[in-house]
């Protein structure tokens, strides 16, 4: 039986929200760790995280100080931030509720359980000590759900849409996390990249920073096995954007997305769009881009492509019949 367009759309969004929850948890976790590792003289600030995720204005409208407590609250438990983890969990649960007949009971119960946990533990997310356990539990729940889906769902349209949502969201977030890294290569002068470019070679904190970026994507160990030598910006950005084998690398996400889309009917336009995005990221010369301070703009271009991908998925399967 073919899948309803409305249901396909909700399953796709369910995939996106679950991935968004996991990624936001990773983002806050790595940022907190980077700050612990860097000396207090480094001017790396929580504002940079807000800038990267495009949330500066929204944040400033409701908070006066961008300190750790407020920023963590903003990303994790702030009901007024539409992309906070707690709101994403609400949305994931609402979507799961509307497609409950499509997913195995264990998945519904897992989502419901995550939702209950988040709502019951808002307080523990507020302190640095409680936050680690909180974020760990959130990430673990998301991984459990991914495992349930892999282990118990038929490889039908619902499964493909769920994964399509996940991979597009994941590609988007990995690119943002890489952006966090490149924007903060120069902890002594956020915002003045040109001045910093010359002294980058001698930056003692560069490898600490990139190590944490890798850690946030659970990529450190796989990276070490794939790439020899010192951990540096060129290698890490290339790995996270272009590696064909690491499951959180943008190139791998797009490849996985393409394979999901190929299983679906009338996929020509969507497959063409994802192929173009894949070529674009694979052909990029990251060493050159880093030298020219062009990584941020490159990532902006990629994000425009991700938006186009979402639009073509929408047009091909969700709105075609309306």
């Amino acid at each position: 039986m073919s899948m309803l367009s409305r249901v396909a759309e909700r399953v796709y969004w369910l995939g996106r929200y679950l991935e968004r929850i996991e990624n936001s948890a990773r983002l806050v976790s790595v940022y907190g760790n980077v700050l612990l590792d860097l000396p207090s003289s480094a001017k790396l600030r929580w504002e940079s995280l807000l800038a990267i995720t495009g949330s500066s204005e929204d944040f400033a409208a409701r908070y006066s100080v961008a300190d750790e407590h407020n920023v963590a609250r903003f990303y994790l438990t702030d009901r007024d931030n539409p992309t906070s983890i707690i709101n994403s969990a609400d949305s994931a649960r609402e979507n799961a509720r509307t497609v409950r007949e499509m997913v195995p009971v264990s998945i519904w119960e897992g989502i419901n359980d995550l939702h209950i946990y988040l709502n019951d533990n808002v307080d523990s997310a507020a302190s640095r000590r409680g936050r680690d356990a909180f974020l760990g539990r959130v990430i673990e729940s998301c991984q459990y759900l991914v495992g349930c889906m892999a282990g118990s769902m038929s490889r039908d349209a619902a499964y493909h849409f769920l994964r399509a949502g996940r991979y597009l969201e994941r590609a988007d977030m990995t690119s943002r996390i890489v952006d966090v890294g490149t924007a903060n290569v120069f902890p002594w002068g956020t915002g003045s990249r040109q001045d910093g470019a010359a002294s980058r070679e001698s930056d003692p904190y560069e490898s600490i920073l990139w190590m944490n970026v890798l850690r946030s994507l659970n990529a450190l160990q796989m990276y070490r096995r794939a790439v020899p030598g010192r951990i540096c910006a060129e290698e890490v950005t290339a790995y996270l954007l272009q590696d064909e084998n690491f499951p959180r690398a943008v190139s791998n996400c797009l490849q996985a997305l393409a394979s999901c889309l190929r299983h679906l009917p009338h996929n020509e336009a969507a497959v063409a769009t994802v192929t173009a995005a894949m070529d674009h990221v694979r052909q990029a010369n990251l060493t050159q881009l880093l030298k020219e301070d062009g990584v941020h703009d490159f990532i902006d271009e990629m994000q425009i492509e991700f938006n186009a991908l979402h639009a073509v998925i929408n047009a091909s399967w969700f709105e075609a019949q309306r």
């Binding site: 309803l4 409305r6 396909a8 349209a157 009917p265 009338h266 075609a320 019949q321």
Partner: peptide, 23 residues
Amino acid sequence: ELVEGGDLFVGSDDCVYMRTIAG
């Protein structure tokens, strides 16, 4: 299938159809 009103339509042959990803 769990459907909402917007998922269904009545064709010119008076049969009821649902809107799916494949048509």
